[in-house]
Amino acid sequence: MALFKKNPNKIIEPVSDRVLQGFCTVIILLLLVVVGYPVVYVISSSFSSAAAIQSGRVVFLPIDPTLAGYKFVFQYDTVWLGYRNSLFYTVFGTIINMFLSILFAYPLSKSDLPLRGFYNKLIVVTMLFGAGMIPTFILKSKLGLVDTIWAILLSGAVSIHNTMIIRTSFKSSIPKELYEAAKIDGANDFKCLTSIAIPLSKATLSVITLYYAVGHWNQYFTAMIYLRNKNLFPLQIFLRTILTAGQSIDASSVSETMLQQVQDGTQQIKYALIVVSTVPVILLYFIVQKYFKKGVMVGSIKG
């Protein structure tokens, strides 16, 4: 294997390094199997017949291979509509998120910011106490946001959790000297932000972008509470309806027979739907992950 070919020009690694590498490989392979198996199971199930899934015959590879599940999924207009809406919310929601979070995090990363203590206290209180579903809803209703796209785009537009991570990244990975140098060259704060802080924090920022994006893509509760018009529903609402069909999360006085039958009826479509609704985010990850690898501080400070 190419990985193990000996390069005669390589510096001989100390033994401890080889042991370390060996250990790494074992752990990583273990990780691969432990997470990989159920993933394979879900994918295989999406290509198997409902009967095979029910009776537990699907173990690793698809049994009774069929595209019926996917056919079902794609014939629903609601699925396409949901896709389109989810995409919209994810893209624009994330843009708003990152915009606000960066604007928030940057000044807070400056240890000499006036009123810093006050801002910190403000933030801490929001982290600790939430007003609850009803009062928040009343507010948004008064603002006319209910049943509009803004209910989704403006919910959780600033995640304190993510903002704090960005702030930490700004603070700890960008030395003060860079700012001082830039200031001497005549840059103002905005320029510092855009020319220094953001480019040097690409890794963290990409991660947070991913966090926000996935958060939008997977979010269900906000949409459930605030949206009534089915043309605005994201994909997750439809997904949820199918996944919990017949599963009495609430006790119901209906006969078990009926619940069971409804549950069985959605078997075919369940796994295909899961795969279909997960793929876009995974694609997004592929796009974003190249930013993780870039080295950061090459050549920025001398000495």
Binding site: S101, F104, P114, L122, A131, A157
Partner: peptide, 26 residues
Amino acid sequence: SWQLQLMLVLPLLYIIIFHYGPMYGI
């Protein structure tokens, strides 16, 4: 530090309206 303070205006506005606004509901 007016530029930094300016940067904070929008996010703060959001927090005050959407986090502190409904707090009376507690």
